[in-house]
Amino acid sequence: MAEIVIPAGTRVSLAAGEWATHAEQLGATPIDLRVVEVDALPAGVPGWTRVRGHGLDCRPDPVGPHPWCLEIVVRVEALYDAANR
């Protein structure tokens, strides 16, 4: 499957089961976030990609910006669908 490109700042809403934690715990609740970056998983797990982003309630840090708040893995198909809703 080709690499998926999602522009930074894109808001995505993912359902339970469409995402997992970096510890491979399948997400049990929906999650909404603004994408910072999407990249391949180190192990190259087919059908999944890593997404770093900010929760919708994230506010800028007065001390300086932080790169991301959330790091999850997402089913590529679900990420593509969520970004194009």
Rank of each mutant, 00 (worst) to 15 (best):
Q25D: 14
G17Q: 10
R11T: 12
I4H: 09
A82E: 02
L26F: 04
D32L: 02
A40M: 08
W19T: 09
D81S: 02
T21W: 11
G44D: 15
D32N: 08
G55I: 01
A23Y: 12
T29Y: 00
H66A: 11
V12P: 10
C69M: 03
E71Y: 00
V45W: 05
A20S: 12
P65V: 07
C58N: 05
A43S: 15
L26P: 03
E18V: 01
A28M: 03
V36H: 11
A15R: 00
V74A: 02
H66L: 14
A83G: 09
V74C: 03
V63F: 13
N84V: 07
H22T: 13
Y80P: 04
R34A: 12
R50M: 14
P60S: 00
E37F: 07
P62V: 07
D57E: 15
L56E: 01
G17D: 05
D39F: 09
D32W: 02
G44W: 15
Y80V: 00
A40P: 12
G17T: 04
Y80D: 05
E71G: 00
L41G: 11
G47R: 13
E71K: 02
L79M: 07
E24Y: 12
E37I: 04
P46A: 15
G17C: 10
W48T: 09
E37T: 09
H54R: 13
E24L: 10
V63W: 13
L79G: 07
V35P: 15
G9A: 06
E24V: 07
E18S: 08
E3I: 13
P67G: 05
V12C: 07
W48V: 10
P67L: 11
W19R: 13
H54N: 11
I6T: 09
D57T: 12
E77V: 09
L33N: 03
G64Q: 04
A28F: 02
A82D: 05
V5F: 11
L33Q: 04
G44P: 14
E37L: 06
T49E: 11
A78L: 05
V73K: 11
Q25H: 14
G9T: 05
V5D: 12
D61F: 06
A28I: 02
G55D: 13
L26W: 09
R50L: 14
P60M: 02
L14I: 01
E3K: 14
G9I: 06
R75N: 01
P7Q: 00
Q25E: 14
P7A: 00
R34I: 05
G44C: 14
V73D: 12
G64L: 07
Q25A: 14
E77S: 14
T49D: 05
V76P: 00
P42Q: 09
V35S: 07
D61P: 07
L79R: 01
P60F: 03
L79S: 08
L56Y: 04
L70D: 08
V74P: 01
P65R: 09
W68R: 03
A2G: 08
W68A: 03
G27N: 03
W68C: 01
T10M: 10
V38A: 01
A28T: 08
D57V: 05
V51Q: 09
W68I: 02
T10E: 09
L41T: 15
C58V: 00
G9N: 09
R75E: 07
P42M: 06
V38I: 12
R50N: 14
S13L: 08
R34H: 14
E71T: 06
T29V: 07
V45D: 10
R52E: 12
